Simulated scan of single mutants.
Amino acid sequence: MILPITLDNLNENIELYVSVFNEPPWEDNWTFEKAERRFLDLLHTPRFLGFSYYHNEELVALAAGNCEEWSDGELFYLKKMCVRPNMQGQEIGTRLLSYLAAHLQERGVMYSYLLTLQEGQAASFYAKNSYKKDLNTVFMLHKLKK
């Protein structure tokens, strides 16, 4: 079952996100409070769209982002996606991305894009699901001094 992410189910989505990204290979240091701020920012972004994937009434995956205007149509920026590690490899992420893509197509969205590490499991997963590296774009980062 796939349901929209709302304030009603936000906490369980945050808990899933923290549990997934604090484990290998990411080994981040998310606390519930930090992730909650991040998710609330996203949830309150204009044209937010997010979905929760439930298997046997247990939340096992999520995908969330927001639509943005572009010169030739609307884009969707997929900012968050994860699948519970013990559920990976069962096509759950692929089904969730397919559901999201169908929903976006119904809305007339032209493209979906995301940022992820160049190498590794996530990049391979997205490539398998028709995402391609855009050779015309570069991700640039400016580290600000403390």
Rank of each mutant, 00 (worst) to 15 (best):
residue 3 L to Q: 15
residue 4 P to D: 04
residue 6 T to I: 11
residue 6 T to S: 10
residue 7 L to M: 13
residue 8 D to L: 01
residue 8 D to S: 08
residue 9 N to H: 06
residue 12 E to V: 08
residue 12 E to M: 13
residue 12 E to I: 03
residue 12 E to A: 13
residue 13 N to T: 05
residue 13 N to C: 11
residue 14 I to P: 11
residue 16 L to Q: 04
residue 17 Y to C: 04
residue 17 Y to R: 09
residue 17 Y to Q: 03
residue 18 V to D: 05
residue 23 E to A: 15
residue 23 E to K: 11
residue 24 P to Y: 06
residue 25 P to R: 14
residue 26 W to K: 12
residue 26 W to N: 14
residue 27 E to F: 00
residue 27 E to W: 03
residue 28 D to P: 05
residue 30 W to Y: 06
residue 30 W to V: 02
residue 31 T to H: 12
residue 32 F to L: 12
residue 32 F to Q: 08
residue 32 F to K: 13
residue 33 E to P: 06
residue 34 K to H: 05
residue 34 K to E: 06
residue 34 K to I: 02
residue 34 K to D: 07
residue 36 E to W: 08
residue 37 R to K: 11
residue 38 R to V: 00
residue 39 F to H: 03
residue 41 D to I: 00
residue 41 D to W: 01
residue 42 L to S: 05
residue 44 H to D: 01
residue 44 H to W: 01
residue 46 P to A: 02
residue 47 R to D: 10
residue 48 F to P: 01
residue 48 F to D: 00
residue 50 G to A: 10
residue 50 G to F: 00
residue 51 F to D: 13
residue 51 F to G: 01
residue 52 S to E: 00
residue 52 S to W: 03
residue 52 S to F: 02
residue 53 Y to I: 06
residue 53 Y to V: 00
residue 53 Y to S: 09
residue 54 Y to C: 00
residue 54 Y to F: 05
residue 54 Y to G: 04
residue 54 Y to Q: 05
residue 55 H to T: 10
residue 59 L to A: 03
residue 59 L to M: 06
residue 60 V to D: 05
residue 61 A to T: 09
residue 63 A to I: 09
residue 63 A to Q: 09
residue 65 G to H: 04
residue 65 G to F: 01
residue 66 N to I: 01
residue 66 N to F: 03
residue 66 N to T: 08
residue 68 E to T: 04
residue 68 E to W: 08
residue 69 E to L: 15
residue 69 E to A: 13
residue 72 D to C: 02
residue 72 D to H: 02
residue 73 G to H: 06
residue 73 G to K: 08
residue 75 L to S: 07
residue 76 F to C: 04
residue 80 K to F: 01
residue 82 C to V: 04
residue 83 V to T: 10
residue 84 R to K: 09
residue 85 P to H: 14
residue 86 N to V: 09
residue 87 M to V: 04
residue 89 G to W: 02
residue 89 G to R: 04
residue 89 G to Y: 05
residue 90 Q to D: 01
residue 91 E to N: 14
residue 91 E to M: 13
residue 91 E to Q: 15
residue 92 I to L: 12
residue 92 I to M: 08
residue 92 I to N: 10
residue 92 I to D: 11
residue 93 G to M: 02
residue 94 T to R: 15
residue 95 R to T: 14
residue 97 L to F: 00
residue 97 L to V: 10
residue 97 L to W: 10
residue 98 S to G: 15
residue 98 S to Y: 03
residue 99 Y to V: 07
residue 99 Y to S: 07
residue 99 Y to R: 13
residue 101 A to E: 15
residue 102 A to L: 14
residue 102 A to Q: 13
residue 105 Q to R: 11
residue 106 E to F: 03
residue 106 E to H: 15
residue 107 R to C: 00
residue 108 G to R: 03
residue 109 V to G: 07
residue 113 Y to N: 08
residue 113 Y to K: 10
residue 114 L to M: 13
residue 114 L to R: 12
residue 116 T to S: 12
residue 117 L to T: 10
residue 117 L to G: 14
residue 118 Q to D: 06
residue 119 E to N: 11
residue 120 G to L: 09
residue 121 Q to C: 15
residue 121 Q to T: 14
residue 121 Q to K: 13
residue 121 Q to H: 08
residue 121 Q to P: 15
residue 122 A to D: 06
residue 123 A to R: 11
residue 124 S to R: 11
residue 124 S to T: 12
residue 124 S to H: 14
residue 125 F to T: 13
residue 125 F to I: 06
residue 127 A to F: 11
residue 127 A to V: 13
residue 132 K to M: 13
residue 134 D to Y: 03
residue 135 L to Y: 12
residue 137 T to D: 11
residue 137 T to A: 12
